[in-house]
Design a protein around this nucleic acid. Structure first.
Lengths: 335, 335
DNA sequence: CTGTTAGCGCATTCAC
DNA sequence: GTGAATGCGCTAACAG
């Protein structure tokens, strides 16, 4: 009923509460004898330190906040998994913060930097405002950006421009000349930048190969297979139909493949498709794609965070994770 | 630098800290005049109440814990989305707890019921032990089971046996006689029960139609499309090949469809497939399936939780959500 | 080594 | 209405 506190333990063990605290935090030396007494009392009473009291006293929340736009994207979930797993053996809790609305999301980040509710924050795909970055710094709350970059902030990311270039080049090397690009909206309310960079890589590869950029070969659609499907159908119904599509995410790629089937096109015989991200489904659906270490990016962000918590670093971490073209079954020479 | 506390605000506004607290919690009456003074001081100092101190004093953690086995299953993520969205406008934080290992997961639930770290807990697909259920009750921590049932605990669930029956009956009504069943392991370390019930429904439908149950028509594989793919190939390579497969989850169904393609079978012309869950991909991939309100189940669990927090209910909530057969493009009459 | 005391920052009685 | 005092449960600094 009445929660058992450290005082109860102290009384039962005939020691002061300080000693009990010492035993719990296995910090300073306590004689073997009294330690046993205390341990026995704790056992007998089924005592558990009250986390809030402990944290308030410590001046640490022992909580890591993860901020992400939405859970509907497999890549975010995979990153979250990485974060979760890395936090598993630490003393930190994971508090999840997500808002599917850009304004609310922004407000969320603000609160996280102002309310002293987390010891550190990991943000996916978003670049906080300069002010927010200052607020985190001022509050001494380590901030890690995943899949986003800012010179003053710890970051774990990949070279998206290069990824776009790799994907497109692969198609060019196979002999494709008519290469379409399907992406999320380059300009978007969340201000994601990855799509823009992949687009830049696409353009660069085309240019380098002396291929013209055709605006009608570029379609934008919301993330998610549904819209991709519709947009892909537009691309594949063009008078001069592309022989290959670079889809800026695997989810988009699924849409393209579906559209191809719908239009009676065989992949990769009649249409080559390259995706991006290498989410779990990509391997399974045998999609040629740009692999990016999603799970690892989550883990790495936690590593940086925990290290920063122990000792504030001089300069922000800059971890560029490797990407790799994974050739699977959705790309082939044009026929 | 030095965190601004309630005391600073009080000093600046020339009032006592009690008054500041009253203004913050808009509880007791405060004169319009002093309220303005306090508000101004708060504004000027950029004061934010320290969450931990507030919670310790209130005796409430203002945190809801969600426990789930893994994030690799789309249906869990969708449920989590529902929880998150419902919590968004509340004063509660969401702490995420997941362990992909049964033993660790069990330990997690134990801690949650013992450590006073959450005001309420939502558990996905698992039935805590009797002892754990008692611990939650004793700690007065409302517990909500989603996709799992226990007579003494709040629960949000669906009738899985009926779902299995509906799916199988649909195939029978189309004229199928050779109906295979692909599911997760009926006996599993997490002790999930949904699969077993869907299996029971499958058996009942067969029996009712006078169709024999054939053990070789039942394959079990881990969740996830990969393994489903392999197991589906076994089913589809049987001498007497089934004309239809009831897949106990949409993820399994995707595996079956993939296997069918691999073996040169057209869906639904040569093979009908019914899935289960109606995850986002199912609509998109046009899979006939049993719809279950995943997102809503998450929302509903929060509703029950918040209500229990305001007023402990006499009896546990029992919310059975409706399921529905959604006929899409993967089922047809056998040819 | 160990008991005691003083906060951590806030909510909430109490008197005024 | 409002201020001061008490306590939430714990850690840490301080004496002994």
């Amino acid at each position: 009923m009445a929660s058992v506190t450290i005082r109860d333990v102290a009384k039962k063990a005939n020691v002061g509460i300080g000693t009990v605290s010492r035993v719990i935090n296995k910090s300073t030396a306590v004689s073997q004898e009294t330690r046993q007494k205390v341990l026995a009392a704790i056992q007998a009473l089924g005592y558990t330190p009250h986390p809030l009291a402990r944290r308030l006293s410590l001046g640490r929340t022992l909580t890591v906040g993860v901020v992400l736009p939405f859970l509907t994207l497999p890549s975010y979930v995979e990153r979250l998994r990485g974060v979760q797993q890395m936090l598993e053996d630490s003393e930190y809790d994971l508090s999840l913060h997500s808002r599917e609305n850009p304004a609310k999301l922004n407000q969320l980040i603000d609160e996280l930097s102002l309310n002293k509710s987390v010891d550190g924050a990991i943000v996916f795909s978003l670049i906080p405002s300069e002010l927010q970055i200052q607020q985190f710094a001022q509050a001494r709350i380590p901030l890690i950006l995943v899949d986003a970059c800012h010179p003053d902030v710890n970051r774990v990311y990949i070279d998206d421009e290069k990824g776009g270039y790799l994907a497109t080049s692969h198609l060019i090397e196979l002999g494709h000349r008519k290469i379409a690009f399907l992406s999320d909206y380059l300009e978007n309310p969340f201000k994601f930048t990855a799509m823009r960079k992949r687009y830049d890589g696409y353009r660069r590869a085309l240019e380098q190969a002396g291929l013209p950029f055709r605006p009608d070969y570029h379609q934008e659609g919301t993330l998610g297979a549904r819209d991709s499907f519709e947009k892909a159908k537009i691309l594949l119904s063009l008078p001069e139909r592309p022989s290959a599509v670079f889809a800026a995410s695997d989810t988009h790629a699924v849409g393209v493949i579906k559209a191809a089937h719908e239009l009676g096109l065989k992949v990769p015989e009649n249409l080559s498709v390259v995706g991006y991200d290498d989410i779990r489904d990509a391997e399974y659906l045998d999609i040629t794609t740009i692999h990016q270490p999603l799970f690892e990016s989550g883990k790495e962000s936690v590593n940086i965070l925990l290290a920063s918590l122990i000792e504030p670093p001089e300069a922000p971490s800059d971890v560029k994770l490797p990407i790799e073209l994974i050739i699977r079954g959705t790309t082939a020479r044009p026929t």
